[in-house]
Amino acid sequence: MFEASLAQSAILKKVLDAIKDLLNEANFECTDDGIKVQAMDNSHVSLVSLELRSDGFEKYRCDRNLSMGVNLASMAKIMRCSSNSDKVTIKAQDDNPDKVSFIFESSNQERISDYEMKLMDIDADQLGIPDTEYSCVVKMPSAEFARICKDLNQFGESLVISCSKEGIKFSTSGDLGSANVKLAQTTDADKDDAVTIEMRSPVTLTFACRYLNHFTKATPLSSQVQLSMSDEIPLLVEYRIGDMGCIKYYLAPKIDD
């Protein structure tokens, strides 16, 4: 038996919006600790790692570890049938379920709807993600990061991110011309609009702008985003999901031949 409830479906809708364009399907691994999803996009250029801890749910029960193969477009369709303020309960009866139920309850309890979704067999092994001490870790407003990715995507396919003591610079160029956005570190680190940089050594890396734009679908989840970079390894873009978990995107760099 698996059962997990959230007081408001809005958070689950945002989580799904953050991954559904990048991934077609994924296994939701449910354990006593919570729900984890790890999956790569079709081209295996990026990897999504999602964690929702059990203590962040209003109610959570997972008698046996289970893996639910989910078509994310189908789940998104179902989640769109909920109101943001609805309580949502995810329920699977068997230890090896072939379907999962979503129950939405309005705040006044006057409307209860349930949707059953067929599960899939997804043959996907997990990847081991090495612990890394990154050369640069930048925290910045998530809306600013989304704006930069959107603006610069108009100029070129590749985005160069350079990080140094002075700040972080995003650059691109293409047929139309070139574009640069520089952000300096702010003095007040506690505010939502703060830009903070922890640097061991400066880094310059090139990434496909298209994927970065996909990652910014997570913007509604968190006011801040964290970018972690080291030379010639994947960029880590991380959004917190309240106090209950986080969504991490890894993006393989483009390397000069």
């Binding site: 081991g128 090495p130 994947p234 393989a252 031949d257």
Partner: peptide, 14 residues
């Protein structure tokens, strides 16, 4: 020119 690397270039199967 630049080459797009894949995740497999960096992360191993667990």
């Amino acid at each position: 020119t630049t080459t797009q690397k894949t995740i497999h270039n960096y992360f191993e199967w667990a």
